[in-house]
């Protein structure tokens, strides 16, 4: 290819002789030039805001209190000694681990039914993955339509099935509101587990099962001795990815319960959102989000670092 076309492709302004040195320079630093736009954008919109919020968390930045005085650790103290904050962190841990556990078991079961082909498998597959492409807001809305009294048909269906009057306040009574939130999460994200675990299952060489069968190994033993060990790294990956998303839980709560009744369905994200954007204690919210960030970072370094080593290259 002629060299001149290269030059005109790489830059559009300036005189030709200087361009060729510029082109040479660009060619030499090619790998950094490719990385630069993305890195700069992430620095500007992720790292800079994080540093900025670190500053904000040590000063007074509150729409209700004027001035930006340095207040030391006061914002952090406010979060740490707020019983609602501790409650929301506990609820986040409980809700996310219960949801992810159910999704994992259900996803594994469904994946096992889908390993081998059967008529209509393609259609079933397409239906099963649909929840992954729906906004969590809409998932929350859909379950609200099903569960909310007196509009939703769920209590009526349960009444018919159980043969006795069912009047559960799915969005207002403990523990049912937690059940509702978990159902919505399970509905949306079981397909994630299913898809990832199915990829793991199909990667297991079938001749292992054939050999096991010849040795007279029963199905249950084969599952423990072949399926589980081969699926190990995939399970870890699926659980990690899901857990890191589950602890952000916000959208379905926003739509389904609005954090209520009272503060009963405050998760960490919902708590910080309320502190920052409905009470306008912005510095307290940033301090809290830094604490939450540190919790998440611990989980990330523990789980994801390990994953990077397991992952096939």
């Amino acid at each position: 290819m002629p060299h001149t076309t290269t030059i005109s492709r790489m830059t559009t302004t300036g005189a030709p002789p200087r361009l060729s040195t510029l082109a040479q320079w660009a060619d030499r630093h090619f790998k950094w030039l490719l990385v630069a736009p993305a890195v700069l954008l992430i620095l500007a919109l992720s790292i800079y805001p994080l540093l900025f919020s670190l500053v904000v968390s040590f000063i007074n930045y509150d729409f209700q209190v004027p001035g930006h005085a340095f207040v030391g650790l006061k914002n952090f103290e406010r979060v740490v000694f707020d019983p609602v904050a501790r409650w929301s962190l506990l609820l986040t841990a409980c809700l996310s681990s219960i949801s992810v556990a159910i999704e994992f078991v259900l996803g594994l079961l469904v994946a096992l039914t889908m390993v081998r082909s059967f008529p209509g498998r393609g259609v079933v597959m397409s239906i099963l993955i649909v929840p992954l492409f729906i906004s969590p807001v809409i998932v929350g809305q859909a379950w609200t339509l099903l569960l909310q009294r007196p509009f939703g048909p769920t209590n009526y269906i349960l009444t018919q099935l159980l043969g006795q009057e069912v009047t559960i306040g799915w969005m207002t009574e403990r523990p049912w509101l937690y059940v509702s939130l978990i159902i919505a999460d399970v509905w949306q994200w079981t397909p994630f587990m299913f898809v990832v675990l199915l990829a793991g299952l199909t990667a297991i060489p079938p001749n292992l099962y054939e050999a096991a069968e010849l040795d007279g190994v029963n199905a249950w033993q084969a599952f423990w001795a072949i399926t589980l060990p081969h699926l190990g790294s995939m399970m870890l990956l699926a659980l990690t990815f899901r857990l890191l998303d589950a602890i952000r839980m916000f959208d379905t709560i926003f739509i389904m319960t609005g954090g209520g009744p009272g503060t009963q369905t405050y998760t960490a994200s919902y708590y910080l959102y309320t502190v920052g954007f409905t009470q306008f204690h912005l510095s307290q919210a940033t301090a809290g989000s830094w604490l939450f960030l540190i919790f998440t970072a611990l989980v990330v370094t523990l789980l994801v670092r390990r994953l990077l080593k397991v992952e096939p290259v």
Binding site: S46, Y61, R248, S289
Partner: peptide, 24 residues
Amino acid sequence: HLSFWVLSQRFLPPIGIVLPVFLI
């Protein structure tokens, strides 16, 4: 390091980013 750094961005809780981005 660079690839892991980009990956770690995926796992940042949005609430930690969105508050300062809102102010900026």
